[in-house]
Design a protein around this nucleic acid. Structure first.
Lengths: 342, 342
DNA sequence: GATTGCCGCGTAAGCGCTTACTATCGGGCA
DNA sequence: TGCCCGATAGTAAGCGCTTACGCGGCAATC
């Protein structure tokens, strides 16, 4: 069933049916009614592919994220979706699981669908891909990676600042042995945080002992990284996590090991996802405005002002430090061995 | 840039370019190389709309879920996505936030895109919509709602059984005052659980006192429902939640109120999302095989056996009871007023 | 009563692809 | 030598829709 059948049934031309369905042009009320009736009776659903092909336009924007299991990404997605819905756009979502190969496929797919904008909330971006995108002419907005170009905007969070706040805070509480838990350390935005950690820690005197552990993004990854730190013999008084999601795993592992938080070890997260305030103990973390990020990403893709568009920009959000229950004064020097049940 | 430009540059016809790009038909190696080179140089990306229009086929399936914030849905999505990827399919996701209006729009959109199958993991389905879908001819699979038809499959979990297990277990532990926390009580699959709760509770003797509280699906909803129960004056020794996600909120609210779990109140969830084992105290819950659900949904949409397709079926999964830390013997009769800090 | 202008609608040309169907060219074979 | 067939590649007809263009008719204008 296509436009033509509807037209035949309503005894008009396909052009008229199209006009009615798209609410453009002048159509007599009675004709409109006939068309609508015919469409309804035939259970007609316009073929969006044909529509896109013919119309050329496309109120669709694509969003690619790294890990839909992490609530951080879900929040950004939902914010963008809400915005898209309000503005009459469609939001296409794809998930890469941090796999660069999937990412390439998804980008190709989005381009193939001729989205009118592409929001990339990912870390696994290599420069050749960025190049390929900046050669194209569809508006792109990155979160956390890349640099502005004629068709590329950037939104970033000042991670260095956030990490610095955390480290300084812990230092002030007397912590001198810190572990940093991360995932995918060689991906750009994540290495930024690691560097920030290293630098801050090194800059402080008296010097802080530190160690870095890496695992997968997620609850299980947080747990594993924690075990790794224990196993290495390093006994931190504070564990700084690259995000809340991993921190939740850390909390769990510590609890299972009989290590109290923050009594024995302080733990921090990053992002301030809703779970961070709901878990036990609640997480000291850094708030990242996901709502605003989703909003800004959508904006920068659809804002129609060609002047402002001409010079693409980079927006950097300042994070806000949030102190909760998972951090406290450093314990006196006691080895982990004594803390942990045999 | 389109097929024609590539063809011109490679000095062949569009048909040949198409053949090369789709790897069908016979093309001389040297020609193929020329075409590939031209496509690369022009940064050609095939227009998927045109491709779909012309080809008629469509390795795309759509999935609509109620609430992407709830990890339960994310897990199903990821399972289906993995499967789709392996089979060379595209998975289109849409989120309704339990809003029937959004649902209708998303369904129309999926049909408009001519997906080759539609997976609906939603509760807010009214019968007229089901009717509309069963009139159509695209394969549809529901989770938790609807009945099998020629083009409709169903996958469900025996919620009643799960709830019954929970109630019986709590009863055996001495609980005689139970609260049931739910969301969207008049949506089909959710009311099923509520009924199961009611029936089980009523069937048991000596009789159990019970109450039902309703709020939004989510952490905040769980908290609010808990407050509501408190405020009503009912003092349950156990709180049964319709899913883990809400239970996490309940746990948080109880902790804040200074009520210990399971010492003062036992709490149960449903679904066994990963967080249920990671939170503190870990949740007694009922395991629902999300992995398998995602898998089955995909299967039932793409399985090519026309014989098996002829008679659509309903698959019911039996849930498995998982006991963890959030449940314990009922406390002796002490009013909440005494438990809670003034 | 002829002219103007606008409303309402049909005609038809694409949008970028896929895919019959056809045409060409050698080579193998009788 | 003549013929047939397979390997290649081109031609062109759609897929279902939008939209520029144009035409008839009717009210308003002079």
């Amino acid at each position: 069933m296509n436009l033509e059948e509807v037209a035949r049934r309503a005894k008009v031309s396909t052009a008229t049916v199209s006009r009615v369905l798209n609410e453009v042009g002048q159509v007599k009320t009675s004709t409109r009614a006939r068309v609508l009736k015919a469409a309804q009776e035939l259970k007609y659903h316009p073929n969006l592919h044909a529509r896109n092909l013919a119309g050329g336009k496309n109120r669709t924007i694509g969003m690619i994220v790294s890990n839909m299991e992490n609530p951080f990404f879900v929040d950004i997605y939902k914010a963008a979706e809400r915005e898209a819905r309000a503005k009459g756009y469609e939001l296409l979502l794809a998930n890469t699981d941090y796999n660069p190969e999937y990412l390439v496929n998804h980008i190709r797919m989005m381009i193939g669908r001729r989205v009118s904008g592409l929001a990339l909330v990912i870390s696994e971006m290599d420069s050749s891909l960025i190049q390929e995108l900046s050669d194209g002419n569809i508006p792109v907005v990155f979160y956390d990676v890349g640099t502005p170009k004629h068709n590329i905007s950037n939104i970033a969070v000042n991670y260095a600042k956030g990490i610095e706040r955390i480290v300084n805070y812990l230092h002030a509480l007397g912590h001198r042995r810190m572990a940093f838990i991360s995932h995918h350390p060689n991906l750009g935005p994540l290495s930024v945080r690691e560097h920030a950690f290293r630098e801050t820690v090194v800059r402080i005197s008296p010097p802080i002992k530190w160690q870095i552990a890496v695992s997968a993004d997620g609850l299980e990854g947080g747990r594993e990284a924690t075990r790794e730190i224990f196993a290495s013999g390093f006994d931190p008084t504070a564990i700084i996590c690259v995000n809340d999601f991993m921190a939740l795993g850390v909390l769990h592992e510590l609890r299972q090991a009989g290590i109290s938080v923050p009594g024995d070890v302080s733990v921090t997260g990053f992002d301030n996802v809703q779970l961070a305030s709901v878990c036990s103990p609640s997480l000291t973390t850094v708030h990242v405005e996901r709502e605003r990020i989703g909003h800004l990403m959508f904006q920068s893709l659809t804002e129609a002002s060609p002047v402002a568009e001409a010079c693409r920009r980079k927006i950097v959000l300042d994070p806000e430090f949030v102190v909760r229950e998972s951090t406290g004064p450093a314990r006196k020097r006691i080895a982990f061995a004594e803390l942990r049940p045999a």
